[in-house]
């Protein structure tokens, strides 16, 4: 939902970043406002996942230039946990398994970290249990998953649903979904997309990073960006995704080359 007067949630200017000395992001620009859903598409290796990890603050990625403002503040100065507590959420492409830590305990610790950050009282186990039961509906998750270790022995679809459950609890201002649709069967995709649609509202923003147009049948973006070699090379509406699906990424590259030539 595009609205001119909405708050700017994320403003990325000329962002460059490298991993182990190899430049990946080469001057990325993006502005995301409250209420908007952005899709970032692009071929493998274009820098999509790197961008999501840079936003979340992964230590292996080094920012070498540019600025990232989150609600007007310098996001790059903050530790990953501070970013999370301030409202940045990254749904992982490959969520990690943490044997020995129950999913419920993990969710409670994460939720209470945010409450504490906001100066609110922590929820005790009982109140938290009530809250989490409501949120389970968002991703149609079996309560039995709460007592299992975090992601341990979960199927691919269950892991992704667990990510969206965490997002439902943490209620971020900016939700970044890194290839959340990859590897999902159609039923799981519907559930995950339905969850994201429920969580999207006028005061937050969603950035979908995806390789496949299929996801956008279920989550309708306001903007579609195409990434190539560490930059966003073209931006359009949802119809751009369809065009990409039928004509492939080469078409965008040629368009861009033509534009440069002109």
């Amino acid at each position: 939902m595009i609205s001119e007067n909405s708050e700017v949630i994320l403003s990325v200017r000329d962002l460059t970043a490298e991993v182990e000395g190899t430049p990946i992001l080469k001057g990325l620009n993006l502005e995301v406002k409250a209420g908007e859903i952005h899709a970032i598409m692009g071929p493998n290796g274009s820098g999509k996942s790197t961008f999501s990890k840079v936003l979340a603050g992964h230590p292996a990625y080094r920012v070498t230039g540019g600025t990232v403002l989150f609600r007007g503040q310098n996001l790059l100065e903050w530790e990953p946990d501070e970013r999370a507590k301030s409202g940045v959420f990254l749904a992982f492409q490959y969520p990690l398994e943490i044997p020995g830590v129950s999913n419920l305990d993990f969710l409670r610790v994460a939720y209470n970290s945010k409450r504490q950050h906001e100066g609110l009282e922590e929820l005790d186990a009982f109140d938290f249990d009530d809250l989490v039961q409501q949120k389970l509906d968002v991703v149609k998750m079996n309560p039995a998953f709460l007592s299992r270790s975090v992601n341990e022995g979960f199927s691919g679809g269950e892991k992704k649903r667990n990510e969206i459950l965490q997002m439902a609890l943490l209620e971020p201002k900016l939700g970044i979904l890194d290839e959340t649709d990859s590897g999902l069967d159609i039923d799981a995709l519907r559930i995950v997309a339905g969850g994201v649609n429920q969580l999207s509202h006028a005061n937050n923003a969603i950035v979908l990073i995806t390789h496949y147009q299929r996801l956008l049948d279920y989550i309708v973006p306001d903007y579609v960006h195409v990434m190539e070699a560490g930059r966003i090379i073209t931006t359009g509406g949802k119809e751009l995704a369809l065009e990409l699906e039928s004509r492939g990424y080469d078409w965008v590259r040629e368009e861009e080359a033509a534009e440069v030539a002109r």
Binding site: D81, F92, I98, V101, A110
Partner: peptide, 29 residues
């Protein structure tokens, strides 16, 4: 693993607590 610590940090858990939680998880078995 950095990735494990980062996963927990990305959920709002600070680095020290994240490391402690992972050590605990290792011993909990």
């Amino acid at each position: 693993e950095d990735d494990e610590v980062f996963y927990l940090q990305s959920r709002g858990i600070n680095q020290e607590s994240a490391r402690k939680l992972l050590v605990y998880a290792f011993a909990a078995e």
